[in-house]
């Protein structure tokens, strides 16, 4: 596994895949990576006031989701924010 991982990371195919994923987020949402980064930072700042979160595991992206009102799919801001600890008292 480790051996193939080594090659996987090195291959330019994976570089292409990662670059595409990033560029498509902004293409799909009409929203640049810079703005996404700002949104991410703002979310971190707000939530960190109340909850200790895992910044490493944090994932924010724009995805497609089924709309409840009409049949089409609509873009949605998806945030996966792992919680490390609930801050019971604010210091």
């Amino acid at each position: 596994m480790g051996f193939s991982d080594f090659f996987k990371k090195k291959g330019t195919g994976n570089i292409a895949k990662d670059r595409l994923k990033l560029v498509l987020v902004s293409d799909r949402a009409g929203c640049s990576p810079e703005i996404m980064e700002q949104i991410k930072n703002d979310i971190i700042n707000v939530i960190s006031k109340y909850i200790e979160i895992d910044l490493e595991g944090l994932d924010i992206k724009i995805t497609q989701t089924e709309s409840e009102s009409n049949n089409g799919s609509v873009p949605a801001l998806f945030a996966n924010i792992p919680i490390k600890d609930l801050k019971t008292t604010k210091k």
């Binding site: 090659f7 291959g11 330019t12 195919g13 292409a16 895949k17």
Partner: peptide
């Protein structure tokens, strides 16, 4: 050899 995206990669994207 990892220098081209596979069909699974393209499909996933």
């Amino acid at each position: 050899r990892g220098d081209m995206m596979s069909s699974d990669d393209v499909c996933e994207i």
